[in-house]
Amino acid sequence: MTANEDQEMELEALRSIYEGDECFKEISPVSFQFRIGDHEDTKAFMLDITWPETYPETAPQISLDAFFNNRISAETKQMILSKLDEQVEANLGTAMMFTLFEWAKENQEALMENHKPVVISVMLTSNEMTVPSSTAKKKEKKEQLTKAQKRRIFNRTDNKGELPRGWNWVDVIKLSKTGGKDDE
Rank of each mutant, 00 (worst) to 15 (best):
V122R: 01
V88D: 09
G93S: 11
L84P: 02
F98K: 14
E102W: 00
S134K: 06
L100M: 10
L92D: 12
I80R: 03
T76P: 00
Q108T: 12
L81E: 04
A74I: 09
T94R: 14
N91G: 11
F98R: 12
S82V: 03
T125G: 11
S133E: 07
S121I: 08
E128S: 11
P132Y: 06
A110P: 05
S73V: 03
E89C: 09
D85K: 15
P117D: 05
D85C: 07
M129T: 11
E102S: 03
L92R: 14
L84N: 03
D85G: 12
L124F: 14
N91S: 14
V131T: 08
L111H: 08
I80L: 04
F98V: 14
E106L: 10
N91R: 12
V118W: 04
V119T: 11
M97L: 14
F98A: 04
N91C: 10
I120F: 08
E106K: 14
S73R: 03
Q87M: 06
S134W: 02
I80A: 02
E86Q: 08
W103C: 01
L124P: 04
F101Y: 11
M79P: 00
N91M: 11
E109Y: 15
G93M: 11
S73K: 10
M97N: 06
H115F: 04
K83S: 10
A104L: 09
V119E: 12
F101K: 08
L84D: 03
E75L: 09
S133Q: 02
M96D: 11
L100P: 06
S126W: 04
E106R: 11
W103L: 00
I120N: 10
E109W: 15
K116E: 12
K116W: 04
Q78P: 00
L100H: 04
Q108F: 12
P132E: 05
L111T: 10
V119W: 02
S126E: 13
M97R: 06
E106H: 02
E86A: 06
S82D: 09
V122T: 05
M123E: 12
I72P: 03
A95T: 15
V131I: 12
D85Y: 11
A104M: 09
S126R: 07
E109Q: 15
N107T: 02
I80H: 02
A95C: 15
I80P: 04
W103D: 00
S121H: 06
T125H: 13
E86F: 08
D85V: 01
Q108K: 15
M129F: 12
F98D: 14
L81A: 01
K116G: 00
Q87R: 07
A110V: 12
V88F: 07
I120Y: 08
V119N: 11
F98L: 07
V122I: 01
K105T: 00
S134P: 03
D85W: 10
M79R: 09
Q87T: 03
Q78S: 08
M79F: 05
T125S: 14
K116H: 05
M79E: 09
M97V: 10
P132L: 04
I72D: 06
V122P: 00
P132I: 01
S134H: 04
L111R: 10
M112A: 10
T94Q: 12
A95L: 13
